[in-house]
Design a protein around this nucleic acid. Structure first.
Length: 732
DNA sequence: AGCACGCCGACT
DNA sequence: GTCGGCGTGCTC
């Protein structure tokens, strides 16, 4: 085999499939999962060996040889390679780009997998006189040299400790040849273990859920369906501790904004060891370190966001997807994978259980419960005996208010604060006002590159397009006629300002992606919210997820109506999820919570369903509707998107794609469209899409496969950027 | 995606 | 004469 071996190598390029190479000269054939350096076109690339076979579709003379092997041992095992292949097939995406998504940046760039330490050493001995002479010109350099003189060879960490700012003289020291830096393999760090803190006693439902999870160590998908505040995390924690004791690891995936320092701290205390963290706020070397701890098995818990689903695990025992309904588990560009769905696929492959947790499960998961393919674990009681909040609508037709705040809402805020409570005002719209209109000619400030209006940000006096990110200075006079302009409608900034004026004696804190852009401001704002120092909180979705504010008793929703008339068939599900999640922030301790929702459409059917039957009632109606209409989860969807600089280009391409799809003659695949996107122009590009739908996943994927192969060669494809989105979450 | 080749326009 | 614009083609 070894002489005839052909290596299938994944390379990070938007090209389908892997590339065939011959093994390196005078070396063993590298195993699947090892990185190799290969010539690729006119450049050299780092690739990953996916497979070792004994043949190629190309003539042997066309094959180049692997230049060198980067890893002595595979850095990914068979199960991880399987997941990469599965992802590439399922999402019809180039395997090299899947590998790139699965590997930390430093490994992609060829850094060693093993931990290394920089050792710093003097190149020559120094006598007192020459050191003195240097000290006059370069005192910092001299200090470092004299330190190294006394310690001898020294690790970077030790030097950091002695001279926190030595990095500033690192370069001159190296350039002058005074020091040399050597990378050596690090000793494996001892695994710090502390006493694990005990948690609260579980209630009957939590205990029952725990027993079910303990009873099985093979593959099974559980839906842990627990109302907000019911203590889902306690259940995971107990199972994780059991597994840890048995030497098994848990991979836990959370939405981006669910990964708060408070959550990590709690996990760490209860486990008695440090979880390996993988999220976007880390440096590349921190991420590599966490990845290595997961792969080597020294971290018993691996906690991360979407891309952590690919993290290798030495002894996998359980996968948890917390807040499984959250849309951030689906990547919305490039490789459009769903980490939740891949988590289930991975658990099945590994034959281990997977727990999907949510207070507002996706309709897809609820349909699996109905079909008996997931196991249902229910937590219906709030932990610690807290009462569910009281919900009430405010008809804004009968109670019109100034600047988005109706009189009943304002007096409720007043009353709750008087009683020592805290109020959260929720509005899913950043900025001061969504529209800037001219008072004389009604001209509206719009984005030059998108079919959208500009949002007024008064604090920094800018007009911002929330679709392309374009910014321009705010002008008080109309661009068309020169008259005075007026901000129209409300965003969080305006609500914050109005509340600060109405309640000057209380602190109002706004939490949205604008107010928390600076590093650390988020943590500070959250701790003020938790301590109760901020009496009134104003915020977007960011504030509604996963936080616990002990003193919060009132939640006010300023404008829920945008969600009532969504064109997307998932609109109702989304609205119910976000309202239920934000409502769940109210009254999680002794005090009963109250939730007030302003709407101009109190008679809308949605309100009846949600107020009377809660989230699960909306879900039942929603599922029935989808079954009648044949939407997911009762069918499968795939979307082909295209965009181009000329309006006709995407449509011409998509029409051709529709034609090819019809020629594929898959009888049970429906072809809907193409249509232009509702916001046709975005960031200067015209956009369109073609929807494919089928009850049979296999049929749909066969068509996608065929399209993937043929569309590349289409002349119309050269004038557009196009992509496939399997199981799209956003249809528009 | 990169990267080269190639074929036309406006510069020292 | 040549520098550089981006259309086209290729990567085992």
């Amino acid at each position: 085999v070894s002489r005839r071996a052909v290596l299938k190598v994944a390379i990070n390029a938007p090209l389908p499939g892997a590339f065939d190479y011959l093994p390196p000269p005078h070396a063993d054939v590298p195993l699947p999962g090892t990185r190799v350096r290969v010539p690729f076109g006119r450049r050299r690339e780092i690739g990953l060996v996916l497979e070792v076979t004994d043949g190629s579709d190309l003539p042997r003379s066309k094959l180049k040889r692997v230049a060198s092997v980067l890893d002595q041992q595979p850095i990914l095992g068979e199960d991880e390679l399987w997941l990469i292949g599965f992802t590439s097939d399922y999402y019809h995406h180039p395997v090299g780009e899947v590998v790139a998504a699965a590997l930390p940046a430093l490994l992609r760039q060829g850094r060693p997998f093993e931990a290394t330490v920089e050792f710093i050493d003097l190149t020559a001995a120094w006598d007192a006189d020459s050191l003195h002479a240097l000290a006059r010109r370069a005192p910092r350099q001299a200090e470092v040299i004299s330190h190294l003189q006394s310690t001898g060879s020294c690790t970077k960490d030790a030097l950091d400790l002695a001279f926190p700012n030595w990095r500033r003289v690192r370069k001159p020291l190296l350039d002058n040849g005074h020091i040399r830096i050597e990378e050596r393999l690090a000793e494996p760090a001892p695994n710090e273990r502390r006493e694990a803190a005990d948690g609260p006693t579980l209630n009957r439902e939590q205990q029952a859920a725990l027993e079910q999870l303990r009873a099985n160590d093979g593959f099974c998908t559980y839906l842990l369906d627990g109302v907000t505040g019911s203590g889902k995390t306690e259940v995971y924690l107990q199972v994780m501790r059991d597994l840890d004791a048995a030497g098994k690891q848990t991979l836990i995936l959370v939405p981006e904004i669910g990964l708060t320092p408070q959550f990590v701290e709690r996990l760490e205390q209860r486990l008695g060891s440090r979880p390996a963290l993988l999220h976007s706020g880390l440096t590349d070397s921190e991420r590599l370190h966490a990845w290595r701890r997961a792969a080597e098995g020294s971290a018993s818990v691996v906690l991360g966001t979407r891309s952590a689903v690919f993290t290798p695990l030495k002894n996998p025992g359980l996968i948890v997807v917390d807040e499984e309904h959250d849309m951030s588990f689906k990547q919305q560009e490039g490789l459009r994978y769903s980490a939740r769905d891949l988590a289930v696929a991975r658990a099945k492959r590994l034959q281990i259980p997977v727990v999907l947790g949510s207070a507002t499960p996706s309709l897809d998961s609820l349909q699996h419960i109905a079909a008996d393919s997931y196991k249902h674990l229910t937590l219906s009681q709030r932990a610690g005996g807290a009462m569910p909040p009281h919900l009430r609508l405010i008809d804004t037709n009968r109670h019109p208010g100034a600047e988005g705040l109706s009189p009943p809402l304002v007096s409720a805020i007043d009353a709750h604060i008087e009683r020592g409570g805290q109020a959260l005002i929720f509005l899913n719209r950043r900025g001061f006002a969504p529209t800037l209109i001219c008072g004389a000619c009604s001209h509206i400030a719009d984005c030059q590159r998108c079919d959208s209006r500009l949002t007024v940000h008064l604090r920094d006096r800018t007009l911002v397009c929330h679709h392309c990110g374009g910014i321009q200075p705010l002008n008080d006079t109309c661009a068309a006629c020169g008259a005075q302009t007026v901000p129209l409608g409300e965003g969080t900034e305006r609500i914050e300002e109005a509340l600060a004026r109405r309640f000057p004696q209380h602190r109002v804190t706004r939490i949205d992606s604008d107010s928390t852009r600076l590093k650390g401001t988020m943590d500070r704002a959250l701790s003020m919210a938790v301590s109760g120092e901020a009496r009134i909180l104003v915020g977007t979705q960011m504030l509604s997820k996963g936080h616990h504010f002990p003193q919060l008793t009132l939640v006010g929703v300023v404008n829920a109506d945008q969600g009532l008339f969504s064109t997307d068939f998932r609109g109702g599900e989304r609205l119910a999820q976000s309202l239920t999640q934000v409502a769940g922030r109210a009254g999680r301790e002794r005090q009963q919570g109250e939730v007030l929702i302003q709407t101009a459409f109190p008679q809308h059917a949605f309100w009846g369903e949600w107020l009377n039957g809660g989230y699960h009632q909306v879900a039942r109606f929603g599922l029935a509707e989808r079954e009648a209409a044949g939407w997911p989860p009762y069918s499968r969807l795939a979307l082909i998107r295209a965009s181009g600089h000329q309006r006709d280009d995407p449509m011409r391409f998509l029409n051709r794609a529709a034609e090819l799809a019809r020629e594929a003659r898959a009888a049970d695949v429906r072809i809907l469209g193409p249509v232009s996107a509702p916001m046709e122009r975005r960031a200067g590009r015209y956009r369109g899409q073609l929807l494919l739908q089928s009850v049979r996943r296999g049929a749909l994927h066969a068509v996608l496969q065929q399209l993937r192969n043929t569309l590349h060669a289409e002349p119309a494809a050269r004038r557009v950027r196009w992509s496939m989105d399997v199981d799209p979450l956003e249809l528009f």
